[in-house]
Amino acid sequence: MIANIPYLAVVGLIIIGLSAVIFKKNLIKIIIGITIIQSGVNLFLITLGYREGSTAPIWTSSPGGVMAFPVPQALTLTSIVIGVAVTALMLSLVIHLYRHHGTLDVRKMGGDDQ
């Protein structure tokens, strides 16, 4: 048994992504951070469905034996497509913001309460 290394990698990815969102000043870097969080969560879902010594849940020319769980894989598929949809929308907003501001600095987007 491998001491849950992939699970810990999930936490690593999530924290790297979050710190990018919190500490980075560049809008595209923030989006990259969100992409990384998404990858972490996807990896977590797939890892949950893995069984030691299993084969993929596909019967075409399958050698038999235990199979990995199909449900988390289906969920991950959904989550991947949602991820690309969100990323596309965010990037198109960023292009617009750049047209208005001429910079990608997140501090340019000040609030109205100051």
């Binding site: 690309v84 596309a88 198109s92």
Partner: peptide, 20 residues
């Protein structure tokens, strides 16, 4: 749907950028 959708996103963004 996915062909049209995903290619549509790339296409529209590329078009917008070239216009700019």
């Amino acid at each position: 749907k996915v062909i049209a959708g995903l290619f549509g996103i790339v296409f529209i963004m590329a078009l917008a950028i070239s216009k700019k």
